[in-house]
Nucleic acid binder design. Structure first.
Length: 275
DNA sequence: CACCAGGCAGTGC
DNA sequence: GCACTGCATGGT
């Protein structure tokens, strides 16, 4: 490992933002908490340490300032969340309560392939073990960072060369064949992830669900967290409980074009406060 | 020991 | 269409 010092960059925040709520609300699996409001992770293959006091977002990286643009993009800092939250708050008083509970949450713009694989792994699983499996996948098949011990998320081409026995080290059980099918379909462009950004949402859902092990929930999470399709609305066990308790007789359609953002506030509220 | 965890595929009706 | 079940693994 080369000894190289990380450089420091500062981004001024212009809207409500919570680093911890954004990274710990269940949408991502590869960030490690270093201390309060300080996390280490990987964006676009580069190890990054990020901290925030809510007014500034400070990051440390071995790369140059070009990463600044990527980080602003990753944390979705150019989107007007006050407008989105205003839109959502007016739709239901309990949604307003969920938003006020953790108003600094943003929907990350993660890599779509990483999101797809992560949420295939997430099925019938818990967040701690999902993180463990995703990190092992990176350590086993990703590229090691030049200056540190972190690994990038492996490429579809690399993963498509693997056989079922290669995945035993992941200890991901019945999900292994699902991952293999995702690797193959993405690598061969039978499922073209980038194309899913622009096509009609139901076509995108159908495309993803041609992959074994990808049902409505995993497809929805891939579209929301990997492709920033904010109109999607992943429903898992927590969301079912929350909908029943907080929004009886309320159709998810009524959450409008930012239903995915609503979902994230409700999910976090349900999981950490309400029940 | 049972039951659960950000579901899904297979089966039976 | 809808209800039910098994599924790998690790944690309570």
């Amino acid at each position: 490992m080369t000894s190289k010092k990380k450089e420091k960059f500062i981004i001024k925040l212009t809207d409500t933002f919570s680093l911890s709520d954004t990274l710990e609300c269940g949408q991502c699996f590869r960030w490690t908490k270093m201390q309060d409001q300080c996390y280490k992770g990987v964006i676009d293959g580069e190890e990054i340490t990020v901290e925030s006091d809510g007014k500034f977002l400070t990051f440390y990286t071995y790369n140059n300032e070009k990463l600044k643009t990527k980080i602003i993009e990753y944390f979705d800092l150019n989107t007007d969340y006050s407008a989105i939250k205003q839109n959502l708050s007016s739709r239901h008083k309990n949604l307003d309560a969920a938003i006020k509970y953790a108003p600094g949450i943003r929907i990350l713009k993660q890599d779509p392939f990483e999101a797809l694989c992560s949420f295939i792994i997430s099925q019938n699983n818990n967040i701690k073990r999902i993180s463990k499996i995703v990190n092992t996948l990176c350590e086993q098949f990703g590229e090691k960072s030049l200056y540190s011990s972190t690994y990038s998320f492996p490429t579809p081409d690399r993963l498509a060369t693997l056989k079922i026995e290669d995945l035993k080290v992941l200890r991901c059980g019945f999900r292994a064949p699902y991952l293999l099918d995702a690797f193959e379909k993405v690598a061969t462009h039978k499922v073209d992830l980038e194309n899913l950004r622009k096509i009609p949402i139901n076509d995108a859902r159908q495309q993803l669900m041609t992959i074994r092990g990808v049902g409505p929930k995993v497809a929805e999470c891939t579209l929301l967290y990997g492709l920033h399709r904010l109109e999607t609305f992943p429903i898992d066990v927590w969301m079912k409980r929350a909908m029943k308790a907080l929004f009886p007789e309320f159709d998810p359609k009524n959450f409008g074009p930012y239903a995915g953002v609503a979902q994230q506030y409700i999910f976090h509220y349900a999981r950490t406060s309400f029940f």
